[in-house]
């Protein structure tokens, strides 16, 4: 117990943007994540793929402390999440909120600054300017004062990304940002993420479309309750890992031509 306490105050694996050790999360009596060990270095654009129910969203929520951990620990830049809150941005699934809420795009983005404002200060001109700049980054400045219920799915997704960007996060976690958006929005989202990576930030994206993983990401995590494989794209993207992650569904993938040949480094 005593060395665990020490763990919290002295940096543990500080050279890694994300360090997860022995993480287990269970809902009721069924483990959603089992004995996860995962390291993600800073400055990569990482994809997390796996079948439905693989625990992809749960992994992000466990990193953010939104679901209780049964075992294991998570370190961000060497420290627990609670002390790194301001360096981490989170983009939840778009369907997780009611978009009929009475508010505008720029107001939603301003809400991303409430944490930095503390309990008592009210957002003012400076906060609005920062929110507008974040909207500009995602190409939404023209719709800043539009009601969020009147935005398309892709526009709502970009508002959500802007809400995370306004905090200037070093680590950005996104849960299925390409789900249910049109091809143009998907393109612009991946452009935004690539630009953030080139600025030295670390991005982790839960992704569902195997057709695009190779093009979009430079780091990949295969997840199915356990971590099947994780590492640089070229080293881990292989038919064998796809099969091990997706099990029987792999036949379908072969038909679509998504499966890669076994990588040269494959044992």
């Amino acid at each position: 117990m005593s060395d665990l306490r020490a763990d919290i105050h002295t940096p543990h694996e500080p050279e890694l943007a994300l360090h997860i050790e022995d993480l287990t999360v269970s809902y009721g009596d069924r483990p959603a994540l089992w004995d996860i060990d995962l390291n993600i270095p800073p400055g990569v654009l990482a994809g997390v793929v796996g079948p439905n129910g693989a625990g992809k969203s749960t992994l992000l929520k466990a990193i953010l402390g939104l679901v209780p951990r049964s075992a294991g620990h998570v370190r961000l830049f060497g420290h627990p999440y609670k002390s790194q809150r301001k360096r981490v941005g989170y983009v939840p699934q778009r369907s997780s909120v009611d978009w009929d809420f009475p508010t505008t795009a720029v107001d939603v983005v301003t809400m991303g600054l409430y944490g930095q404002l503390g309990w008592w200060r009210w957002p003012g001109r400076r906060e609005r300017d920062r929110a507008l700049r974040a909207l500009e980054e995602v190409g939404m400045e023209a719709l800043a004062d539009r009601q969020i219920s009147e935005l398309s799915g892709g526009q709502q997704q970009r508002v959500f990304i802007a809400r995370a960007l306004v905090q200037k996060p070093d680590l950005l976690l996104l849960d299925e940002p390409m789900a249910g958006v049109d091809a143009t929005t998907e393109r612009s989202i991946i452009d935004i993420l690539s630009r953030l990576r080139s600025e030295g930030r670390t991005i982790v994206v839960v992704h569902h479309d195997l057709q695009t993983v190779q093009r979009y990401f430079d780091w990949l995590v295969f997840l199915n309750v356990r971590v099947i494989a994780a590492g640089e794209m070229a080293a881990v993207y292989s038919a064998r890992n796809l099969r091990r992650t997706y099990g029987g569904q792999i036949a379908l993938l072969d038909e679509n031509g998504a499966a890669a040949p076994d990588a040269p480094g494959e044992r």
Partner: peptide, 18 residues
């Protein structure tokens, strides 16, 4: 006001903000 607003729109995000 601010916590109530955050929570009414997106409780999960409110929790992430601490």
């Amino acid at each position: 006001w601010k916590p109530l607003k955050l929570m009414s729109f997106d409780p999960e995000f409110a929790a992430v903000m601490g």
